[in-house]
Design a protein around this nucleic acid. Sequence first.
DNA 1: CTGTCATTAGTCAGACAG
DNA 2: ATTACTGTCTGACTAATG
Length: 380
Amino acid sequence: MNSIRRIAHLDMDAFFASVELLRYPELRGQAVVVGGRSVHQPVDLPDGTRRFSRLRDYVGRGVITTSTYEARALGVFSGMGLMKSAKLAPEAILLPANFEAYRHYSQLFKAAVRAIAPKVEDRGIDEIYIDLSDIPEETALLAQRIKDAVFAATSLSCSIGVTPNKLLSKIASDLEKPNGLTILTMSDVPARIWTLPARKVNGIGPKASQRLASHGIQTIGELAAAPTEFLVSKFGQASGLWMHRIAHGIDERPVVTESEPKSLSRETTFERDLHASQDRAELSEVFTALCLRLGDDLKRKGYACRTVGIKIRYSDFHAVTRDVTLPVAVCDGAEIRKLAGQCLKRVPLEQRIRLLGVRAGGLVEDKMSAASLVQAELPW
DNA sequence: CTGTCATTAGTCAGACAG
DNA sequence: ATTACTGTCTGACTAATG
C-alpha cells in the first residue's frame, strides 16, 4: 500500500489553436488566436483560398481562449482581452471557437490514453491525470507510448509530466512544453521545483501569489523555507498547512476516475451594458432564454435541481449572486424562470449590467425528466 | 427554563482553473 | 473599450435543530 505512485499529467499543446490548424493547415507557422464570435468564421473564396479575420478587425468584449506559440511570442496569451491583444498583434489571425470540434478531438485523445492506461481523471477538455502505478512498464517508455498513441489518434502533440503525485506532475508537464516529456522524482524537487515561482502551483492564483510576494515569498523554495506557523498565521490553518505541504512536493490526492456534476449554469456578457429599466425588454428576453437553455441542459443530462440562482456582473465588473433552495427538485425551464425571477428581485438594479447568468445547483439524478425515457417507462 | 455547544443547511462572495 | 464561459471549492455568516 505504500508503493511509490507514478502519476502522469497530460496536457494537449495549445489545444484549441492546434485543432484549428488541422482544419486550416495553411495557417501553420503563423500567429493565430482563438476567441470571439462566429462573425469571424473564415470565408471560402472562389479561387480555393480562404479569407481570415485579423485581430485588428475585432470589435467587442471577447477574450483570447488559446493562441499559437507564434502568437504568444508577440505577447498575446489566453485570457487577454481581444481589443487589447489587437494592439499588440494587429496582423494575427482570429478564429472563432469551435467547441464541437474540440470535444471530438478530446474524446479521441482520451480514448487513446485509456486504451493503454485505464485509470484516467478528466480535468476538462484538454488535460487528464493518469495513474500509471499498476502498469509494469518502464516510465519513459510508457509515457512515450502514450504520447505516440495520442498523436496517432489525433495528429496533435501533447506534453506529459510523470512524478509521484498530481501536484508535481501538473508542474512537470508544463516544464518542457510543447511536445514535452518530463519525469521527476522527489529528489528533483529542490533543483526543478523550488526554483519556480509560487504561482506555478495549481491552486496558487493571482491573489495568493501577490500576498506571498508581499511577505517576500516569490518561489516555491522560499515557500518551503517559510515556517509553518508563519504561513498558518498569515493564511489560516487550512491554507497555511496546505502551502507548507505542497511546497515540499507532498500531495496524496488520488486520481479520481468518476464524478457527478454539482451544478450547471449559463451566462452571457452583453455587447453593451444594459439598464434594468431602460433595456427591460432586451434583458427579459435574454434572461428567459438563459433559463430555458438551462432547463434543456438539465433534461438532456438527466438532472433536476433543488437550488436555482442568478449572477449579475455590473459595468464596474463587481458581481453579485442570489439563490433559492426548494424542498423539491425542478428541471423545467419555465419553472426555473420563475424562481430566477424571484432572485432577480433581491439584487440592486441601479447600475448598468454587463453580464447575466443562471445557475442550477443541488443536482439530483432525474432520469424521468429525459423525454425519451418518460415514454420508455410508461407501464402500457 | 436558560444558556451553550455541536452540527447541518442555506446563502453569498471570492479564488481558482481550463 | 480589457477582462468569456462553465464549474468546483472554501470561508464567513446566519438560522435552525437538538
